[in-house]
C-alpha cells in the first residue's frame, strides 16, 4: 500500500502532536512500512537546539523514542536547516518528502480559522502541493 511514511515534527511543540504521532505509528505497523520524522530548524540558536548538529541529535533521539514507545521496527530522523523557517518551512517539507521517498505524509494541524484565509496553514499547503498522499490530523 505505502512505501514510507513521513511525519513532520515540531520539537518545540510535541505535546500538540500526540494524535498525529499515534496515527503515524498505527499506520506504520498496519502496513509494515518505515517512518521518517522530519524536523526543520534555523541554523541560528533556537528554542530547541543551539546549532544544527544539536538539532540533528535531538531529532534522532526523538525518532528512537517513538520507535521504542510504539514498537516501530524502522524509524529514522531527517533533520533540515532552513534560512528562514517561518517562510521556507512548507517548501522544505515538500523537498523532504522527495528526499525521503515517502509516499504518505501524516501531519498534525490545528483547526482552521480566519488567518487561513490569508496565510495558508502548513498542513494546508503541504496537502495542496505534495505529489503524495497527505493525512492531516486535527
Amino acid at each position: 500500500m505505502y512505501r514510507r511514511i513521513m511525519v513532520p515534527v515540531d520539537l518545540a511543540h510535541i505535546a500538540g502532536l500526540d494524535k498525529a504521532l499515534k496515527t503515524a505509528a498505527g499506520l506504520s505497523k498496519q502496513y509494515g512500512v518505515p517512518v521518517s520524522y522530519v524536523g526543520v530548524a534555523a541554523a541560528a540558536p533556537g528554542a530547541v537546539a543551539h546549532n544544527p548538529a544539536e538539532f540533528a541529535a535531538k531529532l534522532d533521539a526523538f525518532a528512537k523514542d517513538q520507535a521504542a514507545a510504539h514498537g516501530l521496527s524502522d524509524a529514522s530522523a531527517a533533520p533540515y536547516t532552513s534560512h528562514d523557517p517561518s517562510v521556507d518551512l512548507d517548501q522544505t517539507l515538500l523537498k523532504a518528502a522527495e528526499d525521503t521517498g515517502a509516499d504518505l505524509i501524516v501531519m498534525g494541524s490545528h483547526i482552521p480559522g480566519f488567518p487561513e484565509h490569508i496565510f495558508t496553514s502548513n498542513a494546508g499547503y503541504v496537502a495542496s502541493h505534495a505529489k503524495v498522499s497527505v493525512f492531516v490530523v486535527r
Binding site: 528554542a47 544544527p52 533533520p79 533540515y80
Partner: peptide, 26 residues
C-alpha cells in the same frame, strides 16, 4: 535551502565552544 548532503543537516558542524547558560531561548 538546505545544507549539502543527502538529507538536510546530518554533517557535523565541527567543534565549537557552546556557552553553558541556564537560559533557554524563548
Amino acid at each position: 535551502e538546505e545544507t549539502a548532503g543527502g538529507q538536510g543537516i546530518p554533517q557535523p558542524e565541527g567543534p565549537t565552544n557552546i556557552i553553558e547558560t541556564e537560559y533557554e531561548i524563548g
